[in-house]
Nucleic acid binder design. Structure first.
Lengths: 175, 175
DNA sequence: GCGAAATCGTTACGTTCAATAACAATTTGC
DNA sequence: GCAAATTGTTATTGAACGTAACGATTTCGC
């Protein structure tokens, strides 16, 4: 678990592979997520589900699952847990094959408490990067997954580097 | 699996959380890893183990496991697989409780073939970032896990940003 | 309309990954 | 020399993720 790089070990090409650095960083943040949310007993996937339901009330299960890249078969148990904890609920939909998903009042209250906790957890863990470092990191990560920048981008210098700066590539983060 | 962001869905705070972007990027690279190495039937953890053994021949199991943040109980099966494929071997060590680990000739040959494949896989997937973008990304990721820069750093501008650049923080990547 | 095909949620199942507990063999410390 | 620690191992558990199949319902082609 604690996979800090051990001194005296030669990691060879692993030091150059971004995939490896990515995995390590992800494990690191994952662990700190649990540390930060220990009082709430919530997992990252559960938080993501609650967020999507909260912001898009009335979606059906398969839509929420698809939005998060979760197989709908695996989503069943995930939602069962949230529903039995009284955080989300399945309501009857027009299409009687499906359910429309909503947060309960309790679910919304939890999210109001959880959001600042998670923001603080990230600030805590990423303090060393600085504001611009954080912006850079998230922009780079989005490029890795081939996403465009979310609209909300202020027109401030967004990914300009001191040297080797590249014009935005066709088909990716455009204007 | 294919967790591209769906249009028409409001992801709320998830768009701001680096942990979420990190997980998505990691899944993305993980999948491309398998695509790139399909002909070799090797998994990321196996590659990491082979790398550490190759660069540090003679280490004992617990040392390799610790270097990669793997529990030694889980390392047993991992190494069993590599050994039964003839890629690595356990040799008797002075301390008769332990084994000294080495690559076989076949293991070394595989690594010679695998390294360029993985470099190409990363270049392919990260082409959109540019050289400086890749350097930046790996530097930022290392900071997330609280590591110092590996020595090999050329004195070229290493993490300077156009604005909001911060002096290197005490205890992290100092010059 | 009506029957075939698709969609939706669900169950059952298998695989992989990571964690804990316990144990035998061996080495180390006092 | 004997208690304590280390090393590799097994057994077992739980979580995460995938596939196959099914019943209920809706949609599509005609």
């Amino acid at each position: 678990m604690s996979q800090s790089r051990k001194p005296g070990i030669d990691y060879g090409i692993l030091t150059e592979l971004i995939g490896y650095a990515l995995r390590r960083a992800q494990v690191h943040m994952y662990q700190d997520f649990f540390r930060a949310t220990a009082a709430f007993d919530i997992r990252p996937a559960q938080f993501a589900v609650l967020t999507v339901i909260e912001r898009n009330p009335g979606l059906k299960q398969s839509e929420v699952a698809a939005a998060l890249g979760i197989k709908r078969t695996n989503f069943v148990g995930l939602l069962d847990a949230l529903e039995s904890r009284g955080l989300a609920e399945r309501r009857a939909a027009r299409d009687r094959r499906s359910y429309a998903l909503y947060l309960t009042a309790e679910g919304e209250a939890l999210m109001r408490k959880l959001r600042p906790v998670l923001k603080a957890h990230e600030e805590h863990l990423l303090a060393g990067l600085g504001d611009e470092g954080r912006r850079q990191l998230i922009a780079l990560l989005r490029r890795v997954t081939g996403e465009a920048e979310p609209d909300g981008g202020a027109p401030r210098s967004r990914l300009r580097l001191v040297k080797d700066a590249r014009p935005p590539r066709a088909g990716s983060a455009g204007t």
